[in-house]
Structures are given as C-alpha cells and as structure tokens.
Amino acid sequence: MSETLLSVRDLRKIYKTRRGWPIPRTALVRALDGVSFDVRPGEALGVVGESGCGKSTVARVALRLQEADGGSVTFAGADVLGASKSELRALRRRMQMVFQDPASSLDGRQRIVDALGEPIRVHGIAHGAAVRPLVARLLDEVGLPKSALDRYPHEFSGGQRQRIGIARALALGPDLVFADEPVSALDVSVQAQILKLLETLRRERHLAFVFISHDLGVVRYFCQRVVVMYLGRVVESGPVPEIFVDPLHPYTRLLKASSPEPDPVKAVAMTFQEGEPPSPVDPPKGCHFHPRCPIADARCRTERPELRDFAPGRTVACHHVG
C-alpha cells in the first residue's frame, strides 16, 4: 500500500441547537461522531450518504472552515487542526475545495481573470502582467476559451461556471481537492462533461479527491474507494468495485437498491420498511441504522457496532457482518 496524503482520525463535530418554545432546550447534533479515513495521493475517495449524514461537514472541518471538536486531520505529515494561521495558509495551497453551487461560490462582481488571479497574487505565485497568462492556462485546462477572461460569472452557464470553480481550485496547484457535490446541480449531459474533466485532472495532475456525493452512480464512475456515512458515522468503506458489487452493510444495500437505474427491468426495490430517517439531533441508541434495518436485533438497539476490518481494504460497522 502506498503512502497516505490525508489521514482523518476519529473526527468529531458537535453542533448545539436550541429549539422549543417558550423554554428552548439545547440539543446536541453529532454531525461527525468519530469519523476516520485515509486518502492516498492521486486517489479519488468517495464519501456517500444522505442529507444529514455529515458528509459535507467532513470537508468543512478538514479544511478548517469550521473547527473540529475532537480527532485529528493529518495532511502530508502536517497537523491540520493544530496548524497556526501561517501554517494553515501554506497548507491551503495544497488543499482546495470545489463547491456544489458555482453561482454561489463565485463573487459575482469579479471578472474571471480577477477571481482566478487573486489567489495567485495573494500567495505571491505571480504578479502584475504575469498573472493573466497563468489564468488563461488554467481556463484552457478546464476547457474554457481565453475570451472567458474578461467576462463575469453570470455570463456563463451552470456547467461553465463549475469549470471556473474547478479552475480556481487548481490555481494554487493543490495535491488534494475536496469536491462537495460538484455535479449535483448540473444537468446529466453537463454532469458527464464535468466528471470527465475531473477524471482527466486527477490523472494528469496526480490530484487526490475527497468526492462528496449522494449519487452512487457518479461515485462509481469517478472514485476508486468509497466511505459510506450514516448519521455522523462511517458504516462501511472499501474499494468501489467491491462495494458496488457486494455491499455488506444493510444501509449500503438499501442505498444501492433505492438508486434508480435507467432500465425498466431493474425497477427500484421498494421492499425496505418505511419510516423516516432519524434526525441527527436525537439519533437512535446502538447502531444508528437499527430502526430501518431488516436484520436488526436486540444487540443492535443497545450496542454501537465498531468499524472493523472485514477483508483487506474493506471495513464495515455491523454486528451481523463478518
């Protein structure tokens, strides 16, 4: 096994919410409840799960957009969570992010050349007239013409804007990009263009990705390994082909069975029991998934299953597997 670029260990993030009237009660939301995974150089790791599972929080905490409440994040040997302001600035050149909604992640008042040139200037990579050609090269790399330089974000379509967002993430020459649902706001035909682009960048730049998505099909196409999250915990992880062929955790199986395929012969299985996904505000005891799980027993209701190695490279957190 090759070396590790990013190592996340036992990451915790707790939000406090106050709800109730007239006397508000403080409730704790365990958005991340001991999450661990590794990313290797040049590898795309998928993080999948449904809303509220904490998959976006992973990226935000690992990038220090929010402070963690426990655990550690190590990037290329450096402690990210304990980094000082100047250390963090240096780390951020190597760790970047692509957002879901490119319309919201670009400053509408900046021309493209300024939006992409700003990080280059701020980090002292180039100055003055040297910036423009660098930006033009970035645009070319993401498949946009030079004429885009002097235009504003609103003049582009959603797919083009996402290309700009990707180019901006590349501006500092990162080794790792967190991509938070980068294609889910796009139409299918454009989504495929962006996925192809990301795949090319991954190979040519030897770029590693933490690819956050709710769409199993997209993850299967783009990622080599995948981490499945449910209510703040990792329930299963492993290589993409194996997990997609033979999911171990009942939740992973449910996800797979629920994802509609464009084939009327394989109609979506609707055999799982009904019921709402529990809220992360007040997660069930024991295994978080047990209220929806077809094979849950008494142990699942009281004892939290630990993430265990099942096979080389595969881990699963279920009392009934392995």
């Binding site: 957009l65 951020r92 957002f99 879901q100 919201s104 670009l106 400053d107 701020v122 980090h123």
Partner: peptide
C-alpha cells in the same frame, strides 16, 4: 451564507 466567502477562506485570503 453564500459559498464564495468559504471559497475565499479556502484560498487562504
């Protein structure tokens, strides 16, 4: 609320 503030922070501004 808009992502571009986070994008700026990620870029080390």
């Amino acid at each position: 609320e808009r992502d571009f503030v986070d994008a700026c922070r990620t870029l080390g501004f």
